[in-house]
Amino acid sequence: MICCRECLELLNDYVDGTLDEKIKESLEDHFNDCPPCISFLNTYKSTSKVCKETLSAEEIPEIVQVKLREFVQDTLKNAKEG
C-alpha cells in the first residue's frame, strides 16, 4: 500500500486526471482507508476552485476600459497619419 507522503505527491496528476490507471487505483485504495488524505484531497481541490472563482471574477474597471479604448483609437489615428 502506498503511504500518505506518496499519495500527496500524486495529487496533482490525480486531480488533473493524468494518472496511470493502475496508480490511480492504488491511490483510491489508499483514500478509502485514510480520512486525513481524503481531507487533504478535498481541500487541495477546493483551493484551486475558490482561487479561480475569486480571481477570475476580475473585470476591467469602467475607467480602464475607456482609457484603453482611447488608446486604441489614438494608436490607429497616429498610424494612419504617420
Partner: peptide, 9 residues
Amino acid sequence: GFQQEKLLD
C-alpha cells in the same frame, strides 16, 4: 510516510 494528525476538511 503516514500522516499522524487529524486533518480538518
